[in-house]
Simulated scan of single mutants.
Amino acid sequence: MMRHLVMFRRLPAVAVDLELEQHLVARMQRLPEQIDFIRGWTVAANELDRPICWDYLLDSSFDDAAAVERYLPHPAHQALVKDLKQYFEWVAVDYTC
């Protein structure tokens, strides 16, 4: 099993737009409906206001590294990434569990 973790935070130069943010997060939450080889998927908002914290976490799992490699260029994922880039920056970690 391969875990794919991504942390998101609002871009510093972008004004907070809660309606847009909620829309983007909802789209993230629905992505497994479009990609049937995602095995696990959780999108969570940060709950503590600390400078070190990022705003959201995506915790996902796939059968293996090859499945992650299929996921990254998937059209549904790429369409979401295009819109996320306007509002968020992110970092990712992929590891075998």
Rank of each mutant, 00 (worst) to 15 (best):
R9W: 10
R10Y: 02
R10I: 04
L11F: 00
L11D: 06
P12T: 01
P12H: 03
P12Y: 03
P12I: 08
P12E: 06
P12M: 04
P12Q: 03
A13C: 08
A13M: 12
A13K: 12
V14D: 04
V14Y: 01
A15T: 13
A15F: 02
V16E: 06
V16Q: 07
V16R: 09
V16S: 08
D17M: 06
D17I: 02
D17N: 14
D17R: 12
D17W: 06
D17Q: 11
L18Q: 09
L18H: 11
L18Y: 04
L18P: 03
E19S: 11
E19A: 15
E19P: 04
L20W: 01
L20N: 14
L20E: 15
E21D: 14
Q22I: 01
Q22E: 15
Q22V: 05
Q22P: 05
Q22H: 13
H23L: 10
H23T: 15
H23A: 15
H23I: 05
L24F: 10
L24M: 09
L24S: 13
L24V: 08
V25D: 12
V25R: 09
V25H: 07
A26P: 11
R27E: 14
R27N: 13
R27L: 13
M28D: 09
M28V: 09
Q29D: 08
Q29T: 10
Q29C: 13
Q29M: 14
Q29A: 12
R30S: 14
R30M: 12
R30G: 14
L31T: 02
L31Y: 00
L31K: 03
P32S: 08
P32D: 06
E33Y: 00
E33K: 04
E33R: 06
E33Q: 12
Q34N: 07
I35T: 00
D36V: 00
D36I: 03
F37V: 04
F37Q: 05
F37T: 10
F37I: 02
I38D: 05
I38G: 02
I38V: 14
I38Y: 00
I38R: 07
I38C: 04
R39E: 01
R39H: 00
R39Y: 00
R39K: 11
G40S: 14
W41A: 07
W41N: 05
W41I: 02
T42H: 11
T42F: 06
T42W: 07
V43Y: 06
V43L: 11
V43K: 06
V43N: 03
A44S: 15
A44W: 02
A44H: 09
A45H: 09
A45L: 05
A45W: 00
A45Y: 01
N46F: 06
E47K: 10
E47W: 03
E47P: 03
E47I: 08
E47N: 13
L48N: 04
L48I: 02
L48S: 02
L48G: 00
D49L: 09
D49A: 14
R50N: 10
R50I: 02
